[in-house]
Design a protein around this nucleic acid. Structure first.
Lengths: 240, 240
DNA sequence: GCAGCCGCTTGATCTGGATCAACAATTGCC
DNA sequence: GGCAATTGTTGATCCAGATCAAGCGGCTGC
């Protein structure tokens, strides 16, 4: 349906920001973000929609007396609707890597959609895909152990940012340990321990922010929702 | 925006199925469900949209070797899109109380929407509202303790099914202990203990499936996401 | 009325992950 | 290159919630 897949391009392409034309460029307001730059989603009375053109983003929630949470991770091709986070959550988007967003106000969007039904269809498909991914993340958070949650996370990142060579797969890790911990509802100490165990069991190796999973099926076996994630990811690629 | 609110009706109305015309009746296929009846969401290649007319539903996921999970709870006025759960999750809708659904295939829906933009707006608003509620549930599941999660759940149910009298609020509990446990990612034993503590501290009392919260603000103080839920719920009521 | 079952409660024990506290490794900055 | 600051690792201890097991009450069906 949408053309978000890195794999559909030549093997020499960069894996980090694989696809600068994840959506045909129908211009809204272009928003280039440097690493760690933040876009507030709160207190904007007018909702809007944001398309991720390049880079990786985090949706963060911060409630007064509570730890920061990373609610979801956005990749090129994803569409985010401001209304998805209630105002009181104190949500923002944060660029995990340098990124480019395209922002649309709803009126503008409606006009575009009327004149370009193909664009509307893409947008709806992107939204549906992200919604299903959120379901999987919820399922993982509420049904899986720490190690399983980390495996699910690695599958998610690997699918979206990784390049497959034989049965192995490698990718640049866009999130810091603490950010991953906030996404997985683990504390950083515990996460570090789980990572160490996985490294010593050979499931993954990491050096200088580059992760390699030598045996992808082995990782999939640790990941309760990996198969569902893969199915979902495959659907977003051109079926033809 | 939509007219889903029980409170807008007279105080003598039943609180359980308060509003049989949550959406203006634009007929799709009407689906009456008895308690515990199940509608499979899987393996339907054609996606469709379901409107909850009356009753309370659970969205359940069941993966081969894993415990059942309740991913979300649906109330009258809610709209559910089949695509929100990936096929491999093994999802179904289950009626927690007797319920009525209206089901639409996407083609039919498109035709209706074209001729009735008001209906389309309502549907989108219902979807947006549910999406925000899902965000809050995720936040609660990954950031809150058992007691806080239960408080969040009670606020959710109380808002949707409760009737306010002074500062107190009461409602029929639509879910069993085990179902609540599956929704909150707790085990039933632990949940029962937390309930007992809350009962003995006077936050809530339950008899014959009817729950009473004598001091609603006290419950809200235990609920990290209660304020955000309330804000959200209020938005769905006619602002005028 | 009573047998049996199911949903719920409660006690005793166990454990995965949190917390606290050093310490090591990177990264950034002059 | 060298030093400070930030980020990641690891050990020791602790605790919320899971697990296991036993009882309790209310409902169903005979």
């Amino acid at each position: 349906m949408s053309d978000r897949s890195p794999q559909s391009m030549s093997a020499t392409a960069r894996s980090q920001n694989p696809d600068s034309t994840a959506h045909a460029v129908i211009p809204g307001v272009l928003l280039p973000l440097r690493k760690q730059q933040r876009v507030l989603l709160t207190q904007k009375p007018a909702d809007h929609i944001v398309l991720v053109m390049t880079g990786v983003l985090m949706v963060e929630a911060r409630l007064p007396e509570r730890d920061r949470q990373v609610l979801e991770i956005l990749f090129p091709g994803d569409a985010y609707h401001t209304q998805d986070a209630p105002g009181l959550l104190g949500a923002s988007l944060i660029a995990a890597t340098p990124a480019e967003l395209q922002r649309y106000r709803p009126e503008a969007l409606e006009a575009i959609e009327r004149s370009n039904p193909e664009f509307r269809r893409r947008l709806e498909s992107a939204m549906a895909h992200r919604s299903a991914r959120r379901t999987l993340h919820l399922a993982s958070m509420s049904g899986a152990s720490g190690e399983e949650r980390l495996a699910d996370f690695l599958v998610e990142i690997g699918l979206h940012l990784g390049r497959q060579v034989q049965g192995s797969r490698s990718f640049d890790m866009p999130l810091s340990r603490e950010e991953i911990a906030d996404y997985l509802a683990l504390n950083p100490d515990t996460l570090s321990r789980i990572f160490s165990r996985m490294k010593s069991s050979g499931v993954i190796s990491i050096s200088r922010g580059r992760a390699t999973v030598p045996d992808w099926p082995a990782l999939m076996r640790l990941s309760p929702f990996g198969a569902a994630q893969t199915e979902l990811y495959e659907q977003t690629r051109v079926p033809a």
